[in-house]
């Protein structure tokens, strides 16, 4: 008998395979690696964000500030690179440090004052978006040789496709997310806290420290997503990535992670992000379907996965009812 913890992940893989299979069946071009390469590149920043979000959701929390973080990091990079003439790689380091510090600060308030993560990260979202405008009100290009090199870098795939630098960074981020989640005590503690915070405390897990680290990690990943997004578009725009937090949450849930925390896989999040990309690609290929179907289909998938998870956890004995 298959372990029920894998049901949501299997469902994710099945949905992914079905959608991709349908694409190949309907459109011959879909089987080309060109489509795959584009999927990986176009959704790179979303998937990177979603990997960080996976940890937050696994811990039983939520992080709404990620979209604003992407935009802020872009604006910050533009200012550092174009305005101050700092090398992009140094700017990347500064951005990641900022992301870590900001995430840790939100985590500190969430853990120490026991305030819902939802509302704290909402404030973080407003704050960062406002900070974007403090620096810059318009869309500005980021021009630097390194940025052009990043944009031009390609590893050819068999067929007409290629792996872009964005895609490679994303794949590395996913791999390191998997290692963090499944092969470190920190990762397992995140699962334990999301599964049952009180028990985790009684089992001797450093709950507060772990929660702070979770938001710090999410800050780092969303800052990294911001870097990739900025390099990928070679520009910064304070209104970029509006609503990405929702897409990231959707990718995590469609990837099979329990929204109440404690169960899920980083690998699932990767496929969740790919599913969202495939849906968009399919609708673009179809031409007659309208873009709103993306939202409706994603909403439907969200509903399906939430109900599936509800059924699994309902069958659990000794499961405490989730709080808000």
């Amino acid at each position: 008998m298959i372990n029920e913890r894998y049901y949501p992940l299997l469902a994710t893989l099945a949905v992914c395979a079905l959608l991709y299979g349908y694409g190949i069946f309907e459109y011959r071009a879909f089987s080309d690696t060109y489509v795959l390469g584009n999927l990986l590149t176009d959704n790179a920043f979303l998937i990177i964000t979603a990997v960080g979000m996976t940890f937050v959701i696994l811990s039983g929390g939520i992080d709404l500030s990620v979209g604003s973080m992407i935009a802020f990091v872009g604006v910050l990079m533009a200012e550092l690179v174009t305005g101050f003439g700092i090398h992009p790689l140094v700017a990347v380091v500064i951005s990641l440090v900022f992301g870590a510090a900001f995430g840790a600060f939100m985590g500190l308030i969430i853990a120490k004052f026991d305030i819902q993560p939802f509302i704290i990260t909402l404030a973080g979202m407003f704050f960062l978006r406002g900070m974007c405008f403090l620096i810059n009100l318009d869309s500005v290009p980021i021009t630097h040789d390194f940025v052009s090199a990043f944009g031009g870098f390609r590893i050819p795939l068999p067929g007409r496709g290629w792996l872009s630098a964005s895609a490679i960074v994303m794949l590395v981020a996913v791999m390191s997310g998997i290692v963090f989640a499944h092969y470190t005590r920190f990762g397992r503690n995140v699962y334990a806290i999301g599964g049952d915070r009180q028990s985790a405390q009684l089992l001797g897990i450093p709950v507060e420290r772990t929660i702070i680290q979770v938001y710090m990690l999410s800050g780092i990943f969303s800052a990294l997503a911001g870097v990739v997004f900025a390099f990928y578009t070679a520009s910064a725009y304070p209104l970029a990535a509006v609503g990405v937090e929702l897409d990231a949450i959707a990718a995590v849930v469609i990837g099979g992670t329990l929204l109440t925390g404690g169960m899920g896989f980083v690998a699932g999040t990767f496929f969740g992000g790919i599913i969202m990309g495939v849906i968009q690609t399919l609708i673009a290929f179809d031409g007659s379907l309208n873009s709103w179907w993306t939202k409706i289909v994603i909403g439907g998938l969200l509903f399906g996965f939430i109900v599936l998870q509800r059924l699994i956890t309902r069958s659990f004995s000794g499961m405490r009812a989730g709080a808000t």
Partner: peptide, 8 residues
Amino acid sequence: EVNLVPTL
């Protein structure tokens, strides 16, 4: 009350 984590 069992004080373990049911999801693990």
